[in-house]
Design a protein around this nucleic acid. Structure first.
Lengths: 125, 125
DNA sequence: TTTTGCAGTTGACAACTGTAGACTCTCATG
DNA sequence: CATGAGAGTCTACAGTTGTCAACTGCAAAA
């Protein structure tokens, strides 16, 4: 809703973002390639395309050192909020509580989850 | 995750589903058209396409009376669960509680929401 | 019965996605 | 300095999505 452009991250691209989010520093493609090649079985070309598209979309920064280094321009939290809000507005007419309610009433949460959430709500006052 | 085929409902198609979900009975295209034409500004052709695609996908039943009547084959809850699970698995590595946590820690919930949720968690034991 | 409007079906077409090959240029290594 | 690996860029191509027009028949109105 807010950050329109940067947020149209597709499923495949998201995998790249997740990798970048979990690293401290910017990564050279080499490393991105290595990790995703193994975990996703993608060809190097595919990975290069995804990274490029993310750069074009403004979701990733390309920083010139010897070789380009890549780091996220939008944070995981930011994207998470956006994606969640998107779901909420598309499906629950903007009523976020309905999303939680649906989650609670489905089998999506373990007892442990519920406990932890209850805890969270206690503190969150 | 579960109902793979029927669940690949796109954003536009979802608008049709939402309309159908909020009706008791099956609707003839006439009515679907009227309502969406007004609320979405879509051409009749567009609406017909969306309905057809939903039928093809098995998300909507086409029932022959004088003219075809349409009704949802998957429920709003069912789809909601699927979409939520999808988000959770794509973004939060399957940890549903993280989604809720993100929601709670963002500004996505009003005080009222929080109250109601707290209530829900109390009962939900 | 003829006409006409609209439901239903097909086709269309551009943009976006998933996936990947090919080409070029540069840097490290021999 | 020459060479080769691989980073970066371009191109490609099929499938999906958002939008819609054109055609075809049926059923109601005239």
């Amino acid at each position: 809703m807010s950050n329109d452009l940067a947020c149209k991250i597709t499923a495949s691209e998201l995998e790249v973002m997740k990798l970048l989010w979990h690293e401290e520093d910017a990564l050279p493609v080499t490393e991105i390639r290595e990790k995703l090649q193994e975990s996703k079985g993608w060809e190097p070309a595919t990975i290069k395309t995804l990274v490029s598209r993310l750069v074009t979309k403004g979701a990733v920064r390309q920083e010139k050192r010897n070789v380009f280094y890549y780091s996220p321009l939008i944070s995981e939290q930011e994207y998470g909020r956006w994606a969640t809000q998107d779901l909420v507005s598309r499906l629950y007419n903007g009523r976020a509580r309905d999303l939680v309610a649906a989650l609670v009433h489905s089998d999506g949460l373990t007892q442990e989850d519920l406990d932890e959430l209850r805890q969270m709500f206690k503190v969150e006052d």
